[in-house]
Design a binder for these strands. Structure first.
Lengths: 211, 211
DNA sequence: CGTACCCTTTATCATAAGATGGACGTACCA
DNA sequence: TGGTACGTCCATCTTATGATAAAGGGTACG
């Protein structure tokens, strides 16, 4: 190897095929080189500590430790870490949490090759890079009313898990009526009219995930 | 190029990064070569006609035309086409429909590199290749009771779309009571007790999709 | 210091959803 | 041909869900 002065890149993705693709793409450029790879969130954190790469490409959905949490752990020790989120998920909540965690760019995996390479160079030089489509999603989130309270998110998770209002009340040690009130507030904030719609929009927006 | 006698492979995936990765992986092998790439279902069909590759790697979720439909179109003209499904979705319905369409192998994108290469060689030599984890999912589908009827699937889609029983009745020009009867049957077949659970399990199993 | 504001909690009332039982037709098999 | 299994359809009864109003508790801010 040894490209003198090249941008050293850490690739974190749980799909070997994707890692391969990113590595091939990067190594073909004279000004970039792959410093290391990681197949999970914990590996990503460990590899970052060991290698201190110039730029990190991070998937969001990974085993053991999600991308957002991994970014948080990395930036706790290396506040200047330059991390690019590269994922298939375009839910506005995913985008928000990713950037909130300290990512400098957010790209979707269906982005063209050049867009990725440009983003790597931009982030390496200290800039941020948010494609218009992603920015639009982020703006949507801002517009879409107040955030769900912690309690409401807890209830929403239970709804997605398929629990009835009575069961949710038992789980959280509150009355069934209280659960209904929370749900009513959730429906209002999500702009939907029943729990089924709440489930689909919460999944689409990335507020909760299946499995 | 020109690897004499090499396995000629068509890559169909809407993510440029994944195509890059598969291409890099394949080109590194002396007995394989990339015949072409496609970024959508219609492209995949067109490229297959033009190139008649030995083996095709096909993603399921693609714009314009899904992978299953693309396989169907290809095999209508080339019944001997050797197609490998390579996707991130592990819902039992996705697997069933993919193999039903005529795929010779079904791999998940988090599969190790060697597993993919072995599958390519196996399929090229006329075999099929179903990893144990995938086979288990498929078996689950067999066990999990009778299929939903066309009408029930129609109703299920409406449920996922967030429509009320009354609205579904209006949409399908049947009474609300009939809708309830269909839903009751759906709940029984899916092994759940309300429409919210029906939505999540239908999504998990890949019977319906969001968006 | 108090006064908003929001989260959390509750009860009551109207409506939608699920359970049950059964009718009709059709495709399939003995 | 006779049965039988299944999909489609409908009405009635019970239960869960959603709408509404409103009170207590914490906190930020003037």
């Amino acid at each position: 190897m040894s490209k003198e002065g090249a941008i050293r890149i850490l690739i974190a993705d749980d799909h070997p095929v994707v890692r391969e693709g990113l590595a091939a793409l990067v190594e073909r450029r004279p000004d970039m080189t792959v410093a290391g790879e990681a197949g999970s969130g914990v590996e990503a954190v460990a590899q970052f500590r060991r290698l201190t790469p110039d730029v990190t490409l991070m998937d969001l959905r990974m085993p053991e430790l999600g991308g957002v949490a991994a970014i948080g752990q990395i930036r706790a020790d290396f506040p200047a870490a330059r991390i690019i989120i590269l994922t298939t998920y375009d839910g506005d909540e995913d985008i928000y949490r990713g950037l909130q965690a300290g990512a400098r760019a957010y790209l979707l995996k269906d982005a063209p090759r050049d867009e990725l390479l440009d983003a790597i160079r931009a982030v390496h030089s200290g800039q941020t890079r948010i494609p218009p489509a992603v920015a639009a999603r982020l703006a949507e989130r801002m517009m879409s009313g107040p955030d769900l309270s912690p309690r409401e998110i807890e209830v929403l998770r239970s709804i997605v898990a398929g629990r009835s209002n009575r069961q949710i009340g038992a789980d959280l040690a509150i009355s069934e009526g209280t659960v209904k009130a929370h749900i009513n507030s959730i429906l209002g904030k999500l702009g939907v009219s029943d729990r089924t719609q709440a489930v689909t929009t919460a999944l689409q927006r990335g507020i909760v995930h299946l499995e």
